[in-house]
Amino acid sequence: MRLDTRAWQYGDPSGAPVILVHGFRGDHHGLEGLAEALVARLPGVRAIVPDLPGFGETPAVPGRAHDLPLFAEWLRGFAAAVAPDGFAVLGHSFGSLVVSAALASGLPASRTVLVNPISAPALEGPQAALTRLAIGYYRAAELLPEPAARGLLGHPLIVRVMSEVMAKTGDRELRSWIHGQHAAYFSSFADASTLLQAFRASVSHTVSEFAPSLTGPTLLIAGERDDITPLVKQLELQRRIPGARLRIIPGTGHLVHYEAVADAAACTAEFLATASIAGATVGEDAA
């Protein structure tokens, strides 16, 4: 696959690469804070955050269904292009599915971090009723012409409701900032068809499907109050991945990358510290 992928880089341009893969409907902005916090803790690391195909500034792939195999194929090709000598990889939410599918199909990551991994079927989470509403919403959009579908999918009120449901912080300023992020970047998809295909991929798979293939060092980071995947399912996933570590961040939900950036960066830095990435050993900054 040849695709003009847009990506943003943080930290030392010659540092050991860590590729961060964002979640559904987002773009690189969602992981920008985590990337910046990570390179601050690990000065020897270069964080690379691409926009997924069909999201942000990366175009959709012409003539292809945007299903999980396509995203996995894209990630393998992107990693080979930007980090041919080796890399670690991090995926958040839908990004955890993309990373896991890519690992199962040959992605040679040295270490893997999955933040808020999708570890349970879509209709089994604490908010199963809301998930059913979301499925109905996307199916309704699929029946509409492109302009009307885009208007429905990007409607500010619906985006705000999604944001309100996912945000768990009681900090009013942080909560307002999260809503602003979603308002600005949650509808930067190429077209309604691409978004709908990606949505089907997001609710049709779990990381657990790929657990037998996650044989390298793996860190799972979960929010205690995640409405998408309950903690019991994260514990089950940890048991299915040989040697996997699980860090649970109290008081947060599915937006660990917004609500607990410092904690997620600290967990990730500790996991990557002293690891060999692209032939280089990185160590955590004591400061």
Rank of each mutant, 00 (worst) to 15 (best):
A65L: 11
P59I: 00
R111Q: 14
L70C: 13
D85L: 07
L20Q: 15
F55E: 07
L31S: 13
L52H: 01
F94K: 10
L20D: 14
A104C: 05
S93Y: 07
G77K: 07
A80I: 07
S93E: 02
L90R: 06
P69W: 05
I118P: 05
V99P: 04
V39I: 14
Q127I: 03
L70K: 09
H29Y: 06
Q127Y: 03
F87S: 06
V99A: 03
F78I: 03
L68A: 02
A101P: 00
F24R: 09
P62D: 11
G26R: 04
W74Q: 07
W74C: 08
F87H: 01
I19H: 10
T112A: 15
A47Y: 13
H66W: 00
V18F: 15
R41I: 03
T58L: 05
A60D: 06
A72I: 02
G77Q: 10
V82N: 00
S119W: 04
P126Q: 00
V49K: 05
P121S: 08
L114E: 00
L70W: 04
G23D: 10
R46Q: 10
R64S: 08
D27I: 04
P117A: 00
A120N: 06
A72N: 05
A79F: 02
V113S: 13
G56K: 05
G63H: 08
A72K: 08
G91M: 00
A128C: 12
P17I: 13
V61H: 08
A83L: 11
L38H: 10
S119Q: 10
L107Y: 05
G56I: 01
R46F: 04
L90M: 15
P59W: 09
P53N: 04
R25I: 12
T58I: 05
L31A: 10
V61T: 09
V113Y: 07
V18S: 14
G54Q: 01
A79H: 03
F71A: 02
A35G: 12
V49R: 13
A80W: 12
I48C: 09
A128W: 12
L31M: 14
L34H: 14
G33C: 03
N116K: 10
P117D: 01
R41N: 03
